[in-house]
Design a protein around this nucleic acid. Structure first.
Lengths: 336, 336
DNA sequence: CTGTTAGCGCTTTCAG
DNA sequence: CTGAAAGCGCTAACAG
């Protein structure tokens, strides 16, 4: 048996002693350096196995100058988007032998920066999801964080970016409603300072320019289920026949409250969401939405990070084009 | 300005040189050791600020023998339960200045153990969520992982455990249906080997013993939306008036498919879920379920871990009693 | 091919 | 109160 009670883990010295060689030789064997006599190598491996030896990642990291760990900082672990990014990132990084340190800033924008810097020092790079961080703060932060990959948020071209094309997707959702005869639309906006909200507003502008006969009201709302629920009154009393929720959560909250108010979807009002979270296809009616492949975002973020870590030039910035999922929550416009 | 292009981070030596003191003194100042002359301390702090110096966590960890990091290993980051545990854990550990390393075993039971051991070495302890790991493997693993906290799974009393009381909660759901006149019940079972499935089956046994006039069929199903969806046929053609889904996901999938089949909930069949995930209250009809405070599970896991790390005797094992949320998906039994 | 030596960046006796 | 020196566990020249 190896480890007994409270025993400190065996060191490379222990293995060396047991195998009757120097620590350097043990190191060579453990790292697959072939320039070691096979007989010796055998002895070393045997000793290592008997002692259940594993090199201390800490010590290796210190001398190698790399931790084999990356950090991901997210504003909110409760948000399905970041959960998906984390999942994709964690899986693909793990696949390449990398570990993931997670930093949840709990929406605190000030903490976020400190957190990012502090976390950065414990690992080899950081994947940053910071949709609300002011542009200027971000610029100041980025150099300190390198290597860094940005998710769902642009910067100068010096830092790799993975993002979903919120603008184009919302534009397509607007067109979908328009094609169904809707001329009076309502957009339930998310966090005013967020990058993805800005992208959506840009889509609105494009749409207004292209479709002067349509009208789109912007109503401040929020990003959560409850926010959508609370917006039902505004929707019910308004004259819009089509509502674009900031995301699926908002759309689901809205539909739920609409149902209680006796407003029928899609007969009375069409509703579209955004993200295509796991539950969107199972609401009643199933939600029309733009499908954002969040796990792939995370996966691609890792691929970029991996390039950076290997001092390869990272692949070009990726702008995922969400797929429009047309389901039961949208239908022809009805005169109200 | 401090850091310029590609500059390596300043070391304690750099600060010492700039302040005209020894590294030891810098160390003392940075660690709040008061036995340093205030004038010197000022100079050191000034130098540190100018250089934007921060002690390398890596080097500190090596010499201090602690990383200020814990790991959490989960079988699946897609599962809302583990997402919640992670969230609660991350927030509360972060609050105490600890970092969280995440290991997603992607349901691979073999990898899980290797992953756990490997991850353990990079940090000070691990919170283990391993509902499917065979008992014997777990016992063998635990000593290597110490300090360790177990979530939703018991072990000998030597290791702190946080769990939800699945048995009692399912028992209460069974009684709820019984009290509504249901005598023919169906349980859609989850992963056969999982600890929480076993707890639910135990509840079934209790119920059968206490209510001999009721009948409960166990149907293998699964844990996901799709699994519930696929079970609708069995439910629709069966004679049960009440269905207990393994969890909310399954219940939602089931209700969705039931709707398509023209089976009304709760008029034709009552459905209960389990977990009370964020969306459960917004399904149509809203889902009756047992509310498991997943984030609190994570939070309490951290509290236990913190005790362990400070070599305090951890607080007693915690068994969260889920709260029954009675909503619209359950009603009086109907003769079928 | 293998051992010796010198660090990685920090903390901590131990002297002075 | 402060500095010199040793060492956390490992790897990477550099000799032999």
């Amino acid at each position: 048996m190896a480890a007994s009670k409270g025993a400190r883990p065996p060191t490379i010295g222990d293995v060396a002693a047991r195998a009757g060689v120097s620590p350097a030789t043990v190191s060579r064997v453990m790292n697959g350096n072939t320039s070691v006599d096979e007989a010796l190598a055998q002895r070393v491996r045997a000793a290592a196995t008997e002692l259940n030896y594993r090199a201390s990642p800490l010590a290796r990291s210190l001398v190698l100058g790399k931790t084999n760990t990356i950090a991901v900082v997210v504003p909110d672990l409760e948000n399905p988007t970041f959960q998906g990014v984390l999942r994709g990132l964690s899986r693909s990084a793990g696949h390449d032998g990398y570990h993931v340190l997670i930093a949840d800033s709990a929406e605190s924008i000030t903490d976020e920066q400190i957190l990012a810097v502090e976390t950065r020092r414990r690992c080899d790079g950081v994947v940053l999801c910071a949709p609300r961080m002011p542009e200027s703060d971000l610029r100041a932060l980025l150099p300190e964080l390198q290597p860094v990959v940005l998710v769902n948020r642009g910067a100068d071209s010096s830092v790799p970016t993975i993002a979903a094309d919120y603008r184009t997707a919302l534009r397509e959702l607007l067109e979908l409603l328009y094609d169904n005869g809707h001329r009076s639309l309502m957009f339930l906006a998310g966090a005013p300072q967020s990058a993805s909200n800005a992208a959506r507003l840009a889509a609105l502008e494009e749409f207004r320019a292209a479709r002067p006969d349509a009208r789109v009201d912007v109503v401040p709302c929020g990003v959560s289920f409850g926010d959508g629920y609370d917006a039902a009154g505004t929707v019910a009393t308004g004259s819009s026949t089509g509502v674009l929720a900031f995301n699926d959560l908002v759309a689901m909250g809205l539909m739920s409250a609409l149902g209680e108010l006796g407003v029928r979807v899609p007969q009375d009002v069409s509703v579209v969401g955004f993200d295509d979270i796991q539950f969107a296809r199972y609401t009643t009616p199933p939600l029309t939405t733009a499908s954002v492949p969040v796990a792939e975002l995370g996966e691609q973020a890792w691929l970029r990070m991996r390039d950076l870590l290997n001092s390869r030039r990272p692949a070009r910035p990726l702008l995922f084009r969400p797929r429009i999922e047309r389901r039961g929550s949208t239908g022809p416009a009805r005169t109200r």
